[in-house]
Design a protein around this nucleic acid. Sequence first.
DNA 1: TACTGGTACGAAAACGTTTTCGTGTTGAAA
DNA 2: TTTCAACACGAAAACGTTTTCGTACCAGTA
Lengths: 340, 340
Amino acid sequence: MKKKLTLKQIARELDVSVSTVSKALRDSAEISEDTRQKIKAFAKLYNYKPNNIALSLKNRKTKTIGVIIPEIVHHFFTTVISGIEQVANERGYHVIICMSNNSFDKEVINMELLANGSTDGFIISVAKETQQKQDYHHLNEVVNQGMPLVMFDRVIDEINCDKVIIDDTIGAKKAVQKLIDLGSKNIGIITTVDYVSVGKLRTEGYYKALRENNIEVNEDLILRVEDFDRSEEEIKAFLSQRKVDGLFAVNEHFAIYAIKAVQEQGLKVPEDVSVIGFTDGELSKQFMPSLTTVSQHGAEMGAQAARLLIRKLENTEMEEGPHQTIIIETGLVERNSTKH
Amino acid sequence: MKKKLTLKQIARELDVSVSTVSKALRDSAEISEDTRQKIKAFAKLYNYKPNNIALSLKNRKTKTIGVIIPEIVHHFFTTVISGIEQVANERGYHVIICMSNNSFDKEVINMELLANGSTDGFIISVAKETQQKQDYHHLNEVVNQGMPLVMFDRVIDEINCDKVIIDDTIGAKKAVQKLIDLGSKNIGIITTVDYVSVGKLRTEGYYKALRENNIEVNEDLILRVEDFDRSEEEIKAFLSQRKVDGLFAVNEHFAIYAIKAVQEQGLKVPEDVSVIGFTDGELSKQFMPSLTTVSQHGAEMGAQAARLLIRKLENTEMEEGPHQTIIIETGLVERNSTKH
DNA sequence: TACTGGTACGAAAACGTTTTCGTGTTGAAA
DNA sequence: TTTCAACACGAAAACGTTTTCGTACCAGTA
């Protein structure tokens, strides 16, 4: 159980000074070829690796980026993380992930923890509770400290920082337009309560598509799910009293529950009712019928977010530049829950 | 954009020494009530927070634990992470997650990176490639440095460390026994090639259950999937030429593909063929028919792993103690892919 | 008065690096 | 012989903490 080797130990062992060792290992011209070789050989033999913590302290940068997400057990977020990891690692950064579990308090605690030296910057998708409370002091604080911050997916307009979002509204509009093109006349939507920003935006897309096709909006065909844990029941109850031939759901689960409810009524998907979901997860692919969805390209979102952050991190000068918002296009993946 | 406040700045501002500030903030009795109040008030006003990096360097511990997993886009691993996060956060640790993407090289790089001061210990499930190559030098190195290491799920017997596993063999045996009890006579298994430790163990459970019931093993009913990316085709081809009335699959996806293949042949699940999977993910719950599975209790695995690691971290004395292996019991979740 | 002891604070070392700025030794030019 | 670079290395500061030790001051005691 030998502890890690330090410069000091090498110096003592080889009877030179710490500075000499450091310089030799960094190939400084100041050190003679001879000693340089000797030191490097020794370091290699005993597998010397510089201590990251000491480096971080010295350089005042950690080469790590902090990612804060509401929940990890969610396919979309894991794909985003994959994207972040990939570009971060390519550029020599590593990634710390913390979950807020959709709790405002945990989000604040995690951010404060990581902000005190552990990370150079943040990539975050805020907790539902934060959107609801509209308390953004922790985010502002980080920004004021001059720490780069990139928000993705669930972003907050009031915060001045880089953002990566998808065109929720357009994506939703495309989906609803698809339903219209397929001949659906009575199109329902299953969405969330309005304070969830993406839910709201997707609902807007629904409105827009209808309006653009001169279809009158029937508020009775809109379900705003209150309680995620009871969503299956809410959806079943809702559909049992409506007659629809097209359904747009703002996430994968709502879509699945909707299909099940429809099937229980003896109707067929997609023959009687076409269904389109949002977020392209494993479930959409494997479910039968497989689900037509608006795909979010999570990995690309993550990659873009990481790129934005790293650019800010490495542009120390001009870091006060204007903030960008990158919009990732959505795609429509057609599968078997819609007619062909 | 004010940079973070340091002890030194407070000291200068209040015209005392750095040591005084530090002591005052830590409520040392050495400092007079007066100055203590003054300093604390100032620190609070300007929201002073100690720099974690400096603390880590000083204390030679980082209060973070490194988690290395093969892939994150996998429901089982995300539940494990949830479990780890939860107990880690409770005890004041945070968690760094790195993915190996099932690549040996990336696993090595990530571990070396994190081992150089970034983390106090590791929780790891090794990459497939590592199991295949049987090259464990990076793991041994970490252990030799005296860094606590906990392995979970995909563990390596040769490494001497704490481990958290599930009773793969028993779990599989239970599942196959269930199929037998349900009256299946020709029970097939869809498993992985043998170097994946969990696949091998689950296959053993299959053998055991058959033997204990005096059923002759028919090697022709065993499919060892070679290529994950082509598993759907392999499974379809395999099943098209076998006649089975019971199927055990070592993971969720294999089970789903099996069901699809069976249904394509015009057979019904569970009436004609009963199917049981392994790993209880979203897919198992939502698929139709919903899937009877052996559940792995990922969150509990994670929690136990974190507990083991933290115990080692905090027991500096006696840290050479014997290593434990905790076995998490599996459960059998009965759903609609088996008869009732 | 001279000593003791307590109080309240500061100096400095330490953690492991990197980097700036000396400085002693050499060989060659003047 | 003296002077001056060039060379090869070391000392020390710095990053932000905590902690040990030292010490100035004062009051109380002998």
